[in-house]
Every structure is written in structure tokens, then in C-alpha cells.
Amino acid sequence: MELYFDADLCINCGSCEIACARENGRKKIKIELFDAQFPISSKCVHCEESPCIKVCPTEAIEKRNGVVYINDLLCIGCKSCVLACPFGVIDFEKRQHISSKCDLCAGWLEENKRPPCAETCPTGAIRYCERAEIEEITKKGRRKREMIGAKIYAWRPG
């Protein structure tokens, strides 16, 4: 099972951000609009050799089962990881003064629950499913809003 984002289906309703913030204490997912009408969501790719892990002075970032994970208790809010990330996916949470990014709801998955963003998404733009299911969809070739090169991409442990 993997988490997928389908830009073709996203209506930018904000439900995922709310559900994420509700369960995780802060928003770890972010939907942005490109050209004010094309939703995109960039997320951690869980690099093989993560620069963020290397740069963290307090060893707050670690990799467990392929998932890069920020430990809130150890994070001192120095923003080094924010600068180091080549994809710019780490956000700085001003109010709580810590770095924050999606860790694929590692805790939830261990309990065999689906991530809240996938559960709440009204259109199924965020999906937690088997790869075969996604391949089926892509085979049908229903890319209607292709102008931004929208394609379904997976958020999976590296």
C-alpha cells in the first residue's frame, strides 16, 4: 500500500490539511496552487542519503523503515534542514518553532489505519492503495488537465 496524489482530481478544498493538522498537531501536508488553478503538492521523497539527516545538529531527523522522520522533542528549530532539503519540502512551523514535513503517518500505518488525508479527501485525489489500482487508472489515460504535466505520483518510503 502506498500513498498517491492525483493532481487531476484535486479541488483544493483544504480538507487534507485540516485532517492532518487535527491528527498530527500541525499541518504536514501542503497543497499549493500553480497559476492559481492547478493544485500541486510536493512532499518528502525520503532520499537514500538524506541531506537533512546529515545536517541536523541534534540528530532530530532519523530514518526508520525507509521513512525520514523528524522528532519534535529533539528539534530546536534551527532551520538547517529547511535549507538543506534539495526539494524544499520541509516547512518551518512558526508557531511551534519546529520543522515539519510528511512522515507518511508512520504511526498510523503501524496501527493499520489509513492516513487521515487519504480518508478525508472528497474526490480521491489523495489515495492510499495498491500500486495496481493506480496503474489501472493511468492505463485508461484520462489525463485531462495535462498542461501542467500532472501525473499521479507516489509518496513512498525511499
Partner: peptide, 22 residues
């Protein structure tokens, strides 16, 4: 304490909007 998603609801199949989530 919180909510759980009702994934076999005949209409929303678990999905909720921002208002429903809170």
C-alpha cells in the same frame, strides 16, 4: 476526543470537507 471516518457511509464513503473535519 476526535473523529473517525465512516468509510462505508452510502453517500460520503468517509470523505469530509474542512467543516466536517472540525
Amino acid at each position: 476526543k476526535g473523529i473517525d471516518y465512516w468509510t462505508d457511509h452510502p453517500f460520503n464513503e468517509g470523505a469530509l470537507c474542512d467543516k466536517g473535519n472540525l
